[in-house]
Amino acid sequence: MTGTPLTFAEIFGLPLAVDLRTAARALGIHPETAYRLIRIGRFPCPVVRVGNRYRVPTAFLLDTLGVDQVPVYAEDLETGVRYAAREMEEPG
């Protein structure tokens, strides 16, 4: 695999479609493996060929990753967790 897999927050910040390398990174597979899977018709989600490049619609990528909905921004989640922890610490 090339590079590190995408983080949860990075996945939710993706544009409407991504290049094949980004999709491979999100899926945790090497880009060469991604190209091989496309050639044999076994890439795990739909791929669109645009000229000589491949694009993967982010909606299909998220579906393949098992993500049904895009939550609030990661920063909002972190703020919510800090708020909840503070509320639990304060005597009621």
Rank of each mutant, 00 (worst) to 15 (best):
Y73T: 11
G41N: 11
E90M: 08
I40P: 02
A23R: 01
G66M: 08
R82D: 14
R82T: 10
T64F: 00
P91V: 09
P15E: 08
V72R: 08
T2A: 14
I11M: 10
N52K: 15
T64V: 10
L62D: 01
Y54M: 10
V48G: 01
R42P: 08
G66H: 04
V70Q: 12
V70M: 14
E87G: 02
V70I: 15
A26K: 01
R21C: 11
V48D: 06
H30C: 14
D19R: 14
E87A: 09
A23S: 11
R49M: 12
T22Y: 00
P31Q: 03
A85H: 08
E75K: 06
T7F: 00
A84G: 06
L20M: 15
D68C: 14
A26D: 03
G92D: 13
V72K: 03
H30P: 14
R21L: 07
V50W: 01
E78Q: 11
P46L: 05
R53L: 06
G13Q: 10
A24D: 02
A59F: 08
V18L: 10
Y35K: 14
L77W: 04
R36C: 07
E10F: 04
R82C: 03
A84F: 07
D63R: 12
D68T: 13
A24H: 00
R42Y: 02
G80P: 03
E89V: 06
L61K: 07
P57H: 10
P5S: 09
A85V: 12
R86Y: 01
P44D: 02
D19Y: 02
P44T: 04
A34P: 14
Y54G: 09
E89N: 12
V47D: 02
V50H: 07
V81R: 15
A59Y: 05
G80I: 05
R21G: 11
E89K: 11
P71A: 00
F60R: 06
L37H: 08
L77R: 09
E10H: 11
R82Y: 01
T33Q: 13
Y35P: 05
F8I: 09
P44H: 00
G92R: 10
T22Q: 08
N52G: 11
D63H: 13
F43W: 03
A74H: 13
A9I: 06
Y54W: 12
G92T: 06
G80L: 14
C45T: 07
C45G: 04
D68H: 12
D63N: 14
G66A: 10
E32C: 04
T64N: 10
F12Y: 08
G51I: 05
L6G: 10
R25C: 02
A24Y: 00
A23H: 00
G92H: 07
V48P: 06
I29Q: 06
L37Y: 10
E32H: 07
T7H: 02
E87L: 11
Q69K: 13
L61I: 06
T7P: 04
P15R: 07
L77P: 01
E78A: 13
P31M: 03
T58F: 00
Y83E: 15
L37T: 01
E10K: 14
N52A: 09
V48Y: 03
E90Y: 04
L20V: 13
F43K: 05
D19H: 13
L14N: 15
P15I: 05
C45Y: 00
R42A: 15
A24R: 01
G51R: 13
L77S: 01
V56S: 06
H30N: 15
